[in-house]
């Protein structure tokens, strides 16, 4: 797995320190309640867990970073690229941010085969390169045998692998995972956590991994941001944060 993933991402440039930083303020007003997300963090390579209860603002944070929501103010940058800066009115379109996003419900295209789902984000590549990348990533995530099946014809764990492969084949600068393992059984979850760890050792991009599972925090996290009511209330290593 490791060798294959290293080969898959051989084009990635790991020489530069990849720092991803954000300061986001997003306010929602409703008739009877309002919610404000106000968070700042610097994220380094490796898996950073965003941990917190439902309604803490975890998905809102990911959607702001991906460009699916526009923050009221703040700044989002990856290495030397500014993706959003309210002071200079910069807001890179979601299509050009190069941020991988695995949605909570995976959002696989139900009418496309596994192969077409995975290849959807790399349509601009030359046919040969595209086919090679698809073949590599399908093999890496052990789903090559499913390439002609549709998402409705495969298991939950396999769908999860397809969603990860679809995001990673585009060589994203940052990967956002919104409770991707929530619906899986313990064995499948353990295998996928192992695969994700291997992948990240090979690729080494910042990953923001949203979860409310303590088990996943310890299994995956290099660092934890604890979010509550739209604010980061603690950050540090899994041991230090989860002991609170």
């Amino acid at each position: 797995m490791k060798a294959k993933l290293s080969a898959l991402h051989r084009e990635a440039d790991h020489s530069k320190p990849c720092i991803f930083s954000f300061h986001i303020r997003k306010r929602f007003e409703a008739a009877k309640a309002s919610f404000e997300l106000n968070v700042s963090a610097d994220i380094r390579r490796g898996v950073t867990i965003v941990f917190g209860p439902s309604g803490a603002g975890k998905t809102t944070l990911l959607e702001c970073i991906a460009g699916l929501l526009t923050p009221n103010s703040g700044r989002i940058g990856v290495a030397d690229r500014i993706l959003f800066d309210s002071s200079s009115r910069v807001s890179v379109d979601v299509r050009h941010r190069r941020i991988g996003y695995v949605f909570q419900d995976l959002a696989l295209f139900p009418h496309l085969t596994v192969e077409k789902n995975v290849g959807y984000g790399i349509r601009g590549l030359a046919v040969g390169d595209r086919e090679r990348k698809i073949a590599d990533v399908l093999e890496s995530f052990r789903i090559a045998n499913l390439r002609h099946r549709k998402p409705g014809e495969i298991s939950g764990g396999e769908r999860q692998r397809v969603a990860l492969a679809r995001s990673l084949v585009t060589d994203p600068c940052v990967l956002l995972l919104d409770e991707p393992l929530a619906a899986l059984d313990a064995t499948t979850k353990a295998k996928l956590i192992d695969d994700l760890r291997c992948w990240n050792e090979a690729h080494g991009i910042p990953i923001l991994y949203v979860t409310h599972s303590r088990e996943e925090v310890f299994a995956l996290g290099d660092r934890v941001l604890m979010l509550d009511a739209g604010k980061i209330i603690a950050e540090g290593t899994p041991d230090a944060v989860m002991r609170r």
């Binding site: 460009g67 979601v94 299509r95 941010r97 941020i99 991988g100 996003y101 419900d105 959002a107 601009g124």
Partner: peptide
Amino acid sequence: RLIAASATLGA
């Protein structure tokens, strides 16, 4: 979500 996924994939 499918439309959002398509956008994040650059479409």
